[in-house]
Design a protein around this nucleic acid. Structure first.
Lengths: 338, 338
DNA sequence: AGTCTTTGTCGAAGCGCTTCGACAACCTAT
DNA sequence: ATAGGTTGTCGAAGCGCTTCGACAAAGACT
């Protein structure tokens, strides 16, 4: 293992000079710099991370806490994680992967040990037990998701309320007066992850403004659960012509059920999904959807965090504006049977 | 930030004593140990990771290199990553998340800087450019996946050849004589990731042994691609009664197409999938499948790695035996039309 | 020519921990 | 009672780096 000292010796300068070449914190003459850089290359020198962390008191590591459960949005989580990792690298940071399993202890451990300089939390609950810890430390952090109280916190999320509103608007504009919302799994609501409620909030208030009838039902993924929910919805509101689906693993089952019942999409029934674009495009019907901008969220989170680490950067809530892409699963509401 | 020295002072012992209490590398009297532990708790002490890494020359971090692309098996990747992270924690390790983006440079950087003590590589290609680096270093590593040449490497993977064989066997035993294999996306074969070829190998050789006709077609995910492939397969082999599907995002499209054609599953056609159990259970037909044991692979990889780090542990290839679970998508081949 | 900056380099201290050798203090066996 | 082991604790060195203050050397002024 090559050390700074060896590089210094090889280049015929002192260790501190090499350090300054590396960090650029003091001016170094061009000739010296080149000599040092040459030596670094020749020797294949890599600064020792531990020593660096010890001396500079920063590790250049960002901790990313992902949820342990895989009951929802797995591809979204993955995409966020990858976006975080790649964006972090462009800023010179590496990413430490923590699972939610350890809970608050992980936060304590990481902040306490100086393992990471900052952290990103995913899957934040409305009243998350990790929040007091974050507020009580000077370690920068960013949440992906929105807790109930955001004071003193930086958060990045899709504007789910606007998302809900957008879905209703789109269907209302097409003439649909009876809309059913296939929500997330009941467990998601019970956990108070917030985004589902916020979506519902947006759906409801816009529906009211536009005079549209709305029926919301949570729904587990898979065919069986969707079949049950579907039957109930039609029973209660036989005139339903528009569906908004938030649980991405209920989308395909819903389409299958509609097909089975002889209801054509989009002629008889329109479907709007809230899901990653890839899912919308790969479905059996190309779905009109509001995308979940996973990459953007990951990127944003890291950039906020880096800004904080560099001193500029304030606590603030970044809500990404939703975008609805019209595909072939929505169309004008059918004329009312007379 | 509380330091070892402060704990020592608080407990009225020397710093080295505290260190030995923490590491257990020398015997400490019960009374002293308790006093130190008490101080640690009272002060909320956490050892500084950088200092520890510098002094002990180990970081207690395992690097996990995940593929950047998300064109296949995203949930599997995610599950492996989570399993790696949780298993690593139980052994006192944290996980550093690297994307494949940096390629071999990431390997150099991590080994060179002592950032991680060991690494796990996913999505290994048959002739991966990172392999020479791994062989040339003394840093332990484990691959998830199988390259062409495994000498000097430790690998963990599902036994895909046996998996292929198992699928054919199952269908053959049910009387199917004409089997179509819906493979991974063409890009996967072009990339030479190996597992797809190994599966095919198993399928083919077993098919030959059992006198079953086999038609293999790569297939992108989604409905459109599957529709094209499906039409071609039926055109070429109209008598096909058994399907083996490896690309999990082609499963649902295939089922839809079969339904559309009025072919009942499993009465007219049997379908075996190679996919995580969750997918098999959530599909529109409960699928007979060979599970991809993501968790087990992640866990195994970490345990091999930890064994190596602790000195025992040898280079070896661990192939996990496939298990076929019979559900409701396979049944006896229909009687031949006379 | 002499003073004042500026620029480039160096030496040394210190970050918080591990670990080695030293050494009292206490047993145990003769 | 004495030599020989244990056992528990300490002091000090050192891991590889950053960073501060010092200080020559060179340039910019009167």
């Amino acid at each position: 293992m090559v050390t700074l000292a060896e590089v210094a010796q090889h280049a015929g300068v002192s260790a501190s000079t090499v350090s300054y070449v590396l960090s650029g914190k003091r001016s170094i003459s061009t000739t010296t710099r080149q000599r040092v850089e040459q030596s670094i290359r020749e020797l294949g020198y890599h600064p020792n991370a531990g020593a660096r962390a010890l001396a500079s008191n920063k590790s250049n590591i960002i901790a990313l806490m992902i949820p342990l459960r895989t009951d929802m949005y797995v591809p979204v989580m993955m995409e966020i994680a990858i976006a975080v990792a790649t964006t972090a690298r462009t800023h010179g940071y590496d990413v430490l992967l923590l699972t939610g399993e350890e809970g608050p202890d992980a936060v304590r451990r990481v902040t306490g040990s100086g393992l990471a300089d900052a952290m990103i939390l995913m899957d934040v609950e409305l009243d998350d037990e990790r929040l007091p810890l974050l507020r009580g430390t000077d370690q920068p952090s960013v949440l992906i998701g929105l807790p109930a109280d955001t004071t003193g916190l930086t958060c990045v999320d899709l504007d789910f309320k606007a998302t809900g509103a957008l879905c209703v608007e789109h269907l209302a504009k097409l003439g649909h007066r009876d809309i059913a919302v296939i929500g997330e799994a009941p467990a998601v609501y019970e956990r108070h992850t917030g985004f589902a409620e916020r979506t519902l909030d947006g759906l409801r208030s816009r529906a009211q403004e536009l005079g549209v009838r709305l029926l919301h039902r949570p729904c587990d993924g898979g065919y069986d659960a969707m079949a049950v929910t579907f039957a109930r919805v039609l029973d209660e509101r036989p005139g339903t012509t528009g569906f908004v689906v938030q649980n991405e693993s209920a989308v395909e089952p819903l389409l299958a059920l509609l097909r089975q019942q002889g209801r054509a999409v989009p002629e008889d029934v329109s479907v709007v999904a809230i899901c990653p674009d890839q899912v919308a495009v790969q479905a059996s019907v190309r779905l009109t959807s509001v995308a979940i901008p996973a990459q953007e969220m990951g990127r944003h989170a890291v950039e906020r965090l880096v800004a904080k680490l560099e001193g500029h950067g304030t606590d603030e809530v970044v809500l990404i504006a939703p975008e609805l892409t019209v595909r072939t699963s929505t169309g004008p509401a059918p004329a009312v049977a007379s």
